[in-house]
Design a protein around this nucleic acid. Structure first.
Lengths: 202, 202
DNA sequence: CTGCTTCCATATCGACCGGTACATAATATC
DNA sequence: GATATTATGTACCGGTCGATATGGAAGCAG
């Protein structure tokens, strides 16, 4: 697919590897906390190379965000396909734990989306809005899935699809904060287990 | 208590009011996101006055954090004195909603602690550690309270005091993220209600 | 009044921010 | 070979960051 016209001097670095390195920096420090110096050092390239390859800091962040959703949050969509609401929740919680507390210890802790959407200076407002918008779309997907679960009789009592979705998202985001604040994987795992143990249905 | 030696020119601004204004800025923008220009404009004083009265940005933040805990999170300690674990949780969740989504609409949304502890640049690391340490102390208090609740037979099944505390803190922090991300008070209230409805005991 | 102390306002400091101009190096096409 | 095109490295732009030096204004005690 990349039958690029290779006129001119060829690039000396791997764009995908550089983007992955940039993602790690954003994931660790947030959008505003990640300086161009941090980024270029981690990516192993110079400033002009970064601007030539990615546009600017904001465009680089958006591409890193795409990569994050594509590779690190791939668990979200399959979770929707579980047969019961509790199954959906279980897959989501487990995927989040792997995302927030990488068992290999390679990835940063916490959630890029939560880190970015948590308020910082005015500069990043448009970035923040983009992240919030993406979150809203995920929320919609799960609300629809929970509505189906209500119809399927997955819940013991009366349950509002929006509320149970918001509850689930709240626990997820709380886990992200805890993970970022230094909680161990076992601690977060027990929180997820407890959440499932209290789950009001199947 | 303030029998200050009033030699020299008297101060032209109210220190408490200025600190309250600074708190609102930190609460809205986070530690790093709040620039000295933001702060001095909101406080209505000049930079040298700020440094003379509060030391530096970090010292100002610590004093704002003290004010925050003293006035905005006063609900935490009384919650511990509720007779049952569910009562403790209820008071904590309700107090958090009032804290994160001020009914009068005067205070900023979300939680200063969560905003600050969520990663940003390297400059704020020592501030972050301080906030995390304060959070750890609160966590200990609630773990002890939940251990008593276990002994009191407040829970239906076997429950680990640490885990139920971590679960509660996770929901609280998730609510703070949701509130900061634009959730309405009703939405967050329903999440809290749902949490209590699933609570495994009295 | 004269000292003395403290506060306020202006005008900066050096460091770092995101972003670029410019010259040079490396490849393809002709 | 010559030339066009692209990438790289250096050095720098204006702007903002947190923090201050400095000089004058405003109050006290004597």
């Amino acid at each position: 697919m990349e039958a690029v016209a290779v006129r001119g001097r060829p690039r000396e670095f791997n764009v995908d590897a550089a983007l992955a390195a940039a993602l790690r920096v954003f994931w660790t420090r947030g959008y505003e906390g990640a300086s161009l110096t941090d980024l270029t050092e981690a990516m192993g390239i110079t400033r002009p190379s970064l601007y030539a390859a990615f546009g600017n800091k904001e465009a680089l962040f958006r591409q890193a965000l795409d990569l994050y959703e594509r590779e690190k949050q791939a668990f979200v969509r399959p979770a929707l396909e579980q047969p019961t609401a509790k199954g959906v929740a279980e897959r989501l919680l487990q995927g989040a734990i792997d995302n927030y507390l990488d068992p290999d210890g390679c990835d940063p802790r916490g959630c890029l989306g939560v880190i970015t959407s948590t308020a910082c200076g005015t500069e990043a407002e448009c970035i923040r809005d983009e992240v919030l918008e993406r979150g809203r779309k995920v929320n919609e997907l799960f609300t629809q899935r929970m509505a189906k679960a209500v119809a399927d009789g997955d819940f013991n009592g009366p349950v509002d699809p929006e509320t149970i979705t918001n509850y689930l998202m709240t626990v997820l985001k709380g886990m992200a904060v805890q993970a970022g604040a230094g909680a161990t994987r076992d601690e977060v795992q027990r929180v997820a287990d407890a959440t499932l143990a209290m789950w009001p249905g199947r």
